[in-house]
Design a protein around this nucleic acid. Sequence first.
DNA 1: GTCTGTCCGTGGTCTGACCAGTTTAGGCAG
DNA 2: CTGCCTAAACTGGTCAGACCACGGACAGAC
Lengths: 254, 254
Amino acid sequence: MLEIVRQDAEETPSGADRVFTFFRDRLLSGDLKAGDRLLGERELALALGVSRPVLREALRSLAMLGLLDIRHGRGAYVRSADASVLGQALTLCLAPEPNILDDVLQARIAIECQAIRLACMRAGERDLQTIAVLLDTLVDSLDDPERGGSADYDFHVALVRASGSQALMKIYEAISPLLMQSHVERRRDTFREPAITSGLVEAHRQVFLALAQRDPDEAERRLRAHFAIGDDLRRKNLISTYQASTQQTRGKTS
Amino acid sequence: MLEIVRQDAEETPSGADRVFTFFRDRLLSGDLKAGDRLLGERELALALGVSRPVLREALRSLAMLGLLDIRHGRGAYVRSADASVLGQALTLCLAPEPNILDDVLQARIAIECQAIRLACMRAGERDLQTIAVLLDTLVDSLDDPERGGSADYDFHVALVRASGSQALMKIYEAISPLLMQSHVERRRDTFREPAITSGLVEAHRQVFLALAQRDPDEAERRLRAHFAIGDDLRRKNLISTYQASTQQTRGKTS
DNA sequence: GTCTGTCCGTGGTCTGACCAGTTTAGGCAG
DNA sequence: CTGCCTAAACTGGTCAGACCACGGACAGAC
């Protein structure tokens, strides 16, 4: 059957907005797939009945949202959905709030705890193998804060990915940039103490073990214990910082 | 051969992008607060050294991201961060994925379970009172799918809010529109059966009780049980649908 | 055959004008 | 003097046409 799309005159849909929603809906419905190339700006403007500046405003907005990849001299291409935009949006939303770092950490715990429960039920053998490899990497890179932090992050990402939930994964990716902010420096301050790092590895191993045994409750408990340790560490670090124990002057007491 | 010194020493920051990031950073740093009014387009264009179309592209992009509220004849005003953009972005990101509804439900469970744990520790008396009131509302609106669904939603939102975590709250708001899609119809199909609805209320009550007693583990367990019931319901509904039990033909078996 | 330079199509920008809502200030009537 | 009503001066919204800058493709020279 033939459906005539009528862009009826609502209340001031305002040209650029019309074009914007036009393309957004095309993207949502799947008419436009990632990699598709759009027509030239002049042709599009003509086809949609708007001037080029207006068309450009809409296109630019779509590009800002990460939906389009506009390249000078090449053209505009549809880009696959990207979580980075999500992250930016989240950052903007949380910008005015204080104590965002701790808050985002709570979101992280939320996602991971649910993810590992799902993973216990749905993770495949390859998922477990991947995580096991990352666990080894974690052990191998204990003395390197850079690589160690990266391995740590990869481990947790693999955990979330093993849940098989795209929604959890996307949200996790979205909060990752916020997470990074505090993660690296925190690790930089603690990696030197062997008791801590070895405990860290042990915590990861226990989480993995519970996952491999497909025990959701146990896995979540281990994971929460792992986070609790980090929380303790952070608290102690805070205390020692404010106690003016100037013996370790490497950190900035900002 | 006069060599004219060009001011753009960078690598194609591309006018509109410069303006965009300029304002975005101002918003992030707090230089621009919600409610502030921007200068006129002509003045801004002059001040930033770009033409009006370029300035407009940037402004329009910011408006699309929900950061600005541009009104014809009035001017451009800074808008407080809104979770609706987050929701849109998430929708866009998850659009190409199948089974988004179930996935988003997993995210919801993740957020709520962590939220209630935090709530057990941080909820104030007024938070508990609010939730108690909503619980009563829930009881009072058992026979109305519209009001009942709304009360249900409000109850869970209050739960998350009681966690005191803005990050959890924002993410919850972001996934809410996705949640709504499946929530209303699901409830419409089940509200008639008294056993279910009464069980539903009981589940909510138990969650609240555990929260009031500040017992994180118990609260999470109750909450998970509550979700598990919904899951069971959905599964049974699915089964009965595919068993061609045509006695209830209101639902489309798309 | 490869390299290179020119050409063409693309997005990027500018200018200047005009249209359309919104506010406001001034003038006119009471 | 007070009140309303109109018109001017904002504001953003749109348009047209032109030109610049970048990238790739083709054709010519080596």
